[in-house]
């Protein structure tokens, strides 16, 4: 133990604390089973409306429209995936707003571990519970709506891209929450980010249906990495290179958004330490 370099020890201590926060977040989510079930019901209602909608579109394939490009089974499984990711991301922005605005930051600042890291780890635990719960509900709902389940390799790709996409969503909402250092309410930036995620992430329809320029914008934006990749994987199982490209792009956004969150957090913390809450 004595011979471990201090840097390595600090890193492993930090990981240990984050791991403990992750487990606590997961346990807290599981302790509120009715809330999780309520989330699953909400997921079910969203799917009911959207699947009904896309089935209607697919039922009358109007010539000369995009309907010709609809996948054989319609977009039921597609919205199943994008809604799964969207509804799994916890409302970390409201937690950050509460802590930052109500002065609840102080008890955390009096601890030796980073508040941001501990909070993100706890919320990731929370998100894990939702991903599992809604994932199971999704498979059940697809069976209910008489959809065939995707093949195992496709499910693997969707799972990987979906979980990474959810992590990107968590970071996007974290950035929204950190604006609370400067704004009184985070709701306005949240609405903007949410709507951008719906549009550029392709929550309701694949971004491949968009006009070329909008498609490219969506593909290279963090919102595409958040939702559209997992959705794309379920309509047309990706090639290995396609899968690797999407995962690489997701990794880039994961790193970039993490770095940005750390920078914004540090700026906000400096402001708080100087000016008080």
């Amino acid at each position: 133990m004595r011979s471990t370099p201090p840097f390595i020890r600090r890193l492993s201590d930090g990981a240990g604390a984050a791991g403990a926060a992750y487990r606590a977040g997961l346990a807290a989510a599981l302790a509120q089973t009715p809330v999780l079930l309520g989330r699953a019901v909400f997921y079910g209602v969203c799917l009911m409306v959207l699947i009904t909608f896309w089935d209607k579109v697919a039922a009358h394939r109007l010539p000369g429209t995009l309907a010709a490009r609809l996948p054989a089974g319609g977009l039921g499984t597609y919205v199943g995936v994008t809604e799964w990711v969207t509804l799994s991301v916890p409302a970390v922005h409201f937690k950050l707003e509460d802590d930052i605005r109500a002065g609840a930051l102080e008890p955390h600042l009096l601890r030796p571990k980073s508040y941001l890291a501990q909070t993100l780890a706890g919320q990731a635990g929370f998100m894990t519970a939702r991903l599992v719960m809604l994932g199971a509900a999704g498979l059940l709902l697809l069976a209910l709506f008489a959809r065939t389940w995707p093949s195992v390799p496709t499910m693997g790709a969707v799972f990987t891209l979906g979980v990474t996409g959810a992590a990107i969503g968590l970071l996007l909402l974290t950035l929204v929450g950190l604006t609370a250092f400067w704004l009184r309410r985070v709701l306005p930036p949240m609405l903007i980010v949410q709507k951008l995620a719906f549009l550029l992430g392709g929550l309701f329809a694949p971004i491949a249906f968009y006009p070329g320029w909008l498609y490219r914008l969506a593909w290279f934006s963090p919102f595409g990495a958040h939702l559209a990749f997992a959705g794309a994987a379920i309509i047309g199982p990706p090639s290995w290179t396609g899968f690797a490209t999407m995962l690489a792009l997701q990794s880039f956004w994961l790193a970039a958004l993490t770095a940005l969150a750390v920078l914004v957090w540090r700026a906000g913390l400096r402001k708080t330490l100087r000016e008080g809450v």
Partner: peptide, 12 residues
């Protein structure tokens, strides 16, 4: 008990 266990990791 769970909160205590978390604090053990926070304070190494």
């Amino acid at each position: 008990r769970d909160s205590f266990a978390l604090l053990r990791r926070v304070y190494d």
